[in-house]
């Protein structure tokens, strides 16, 4: 027991150590001139900017905007993907194969190219970004739902039939938890894509959002602020990923160990 604890602590320590070493290399590289300070800045100059970020009202507007873009886009995309995935499951295996192909090939299309078109339809509002984020999220979620539910062991399907469970009960009590190990990675991928595409679009055409803020700092030669924003975005992504993992472990308590 004590040994396992010690091992856990040293693993965490090693992980922190890796990050610390990278930050140190960054600082040293910048001070010694191996890294051009104008392009790469340095941790000691980014850190104070980081503090400023939270006191500036401008960035909180950007943060709110990005959270909304990602949040609305992810939520509606995941919902659409869930419904579409379940509809596909309800169809025969051959029909499912044909239709799923179309969904998957959506993934190959850089949906960002539709952004200008959506802009002309909806104007410079949040909607074009949210729509594209939703479609981007929908694809892996649809595939994830279909595949993870199709992979539920036949013995569990027989059990739901033998116990004469209603569709809703079977879904809630058996299929959904059984599908979690395969379903969750697709949700996590969906979230990652939502972040990437929302911030990417904010970069190009938007008047607010973290992507816009990064681009704006870049154009204003505010390199230190730009790095502070980049670090902030990274942290945000990590926090959400940790939260998703926690949800996953709650749904499948047997997998925590």
């Amino acid at each position: 027991m004590a040994n396992a604890r010690l091992r856990d602590v040293s693993v965490v320590a090693a992980r922190i150590g890796v990050v610390a070493a990278l930050v140190l290399c960054w600082e040293l590289g910048s001070r010694s001139g191996y890294l051009d300070p104008l392009t790469f800045s340095s941790p000691s100059r980014v850190a104070p900017q980081f503090v400023d970020l939270f006191s500036s009202p401008v960035v909180s507007v950007d943060l709110e905007s990005t959270v909304k873009n990602v949040g609305f886009g992810f939520a509606s995309g995941a919902l659409a993907g869930g419904v579409l995935g379940l509809l596909l499951l309800g169809m025969g295996e051959s029909v499912r194969g044909i239709l799923l192909n179309y969904v998957v090939s959506l993934q190959a299309i850089p949906l960002l190219v539709f952004y200008p078109l959506l802009l002309t339809i909806f104007g410079l509002t949040r909607l074009p970004i949210v729509i594209i984020v939703a479609v981007v999220v929908m694809v892996p979620v649809t595939v994830g739902v279909t595949n993870s539910f199709a992979a539920v062991p036949r013995s569990l399907v027989r059990l739901t039939r033998a116990l004469d469970l209603s569709r809703g009960t079977a879904l809630r009590k058996v299929y959904l938890p059984a599908a979690v190990p395969l379903l969750f990675p697709s949700l996590r991928l969906g979230f990652l894509l939502a972040m990437v595409s929302a911030i990417g679009m904010e970069f190009v055409v938007a008047s607010q959002g973290l992507g816009y803020a990064v681009a704006h700092s870049y154009h204003a030669f505010a390199t230190d602020q730009m790095y502070a924003l980049i670090v902030f975005i990274c942290l945000l992504a990590v926090v959400v990923d940790v939260a998703l993992t926690a949800v996953e472990n709650r749904l499948r308590r047997d997998r925590v160990a």
Binding site: P153, S155, A162, D164, K173, P177, V180, R253
Partner: peptide
């Protein structure tokens, strides 16, 4: 004419719900 609540089935695979404890598996029906 359909599954009966007075009939129970045991399959070749134990068909347990892996995310539930043994007690909660037994209590499931």
């Amino acid at each position: 004419t359909g599954p009966q609540s007075t009939t129970s089935m045991v399959f070749q695979e134990a068909a347990l719900l892996p995310w539930r404890s043994v007690l909660d598996n037994v209590a499931f029906p």
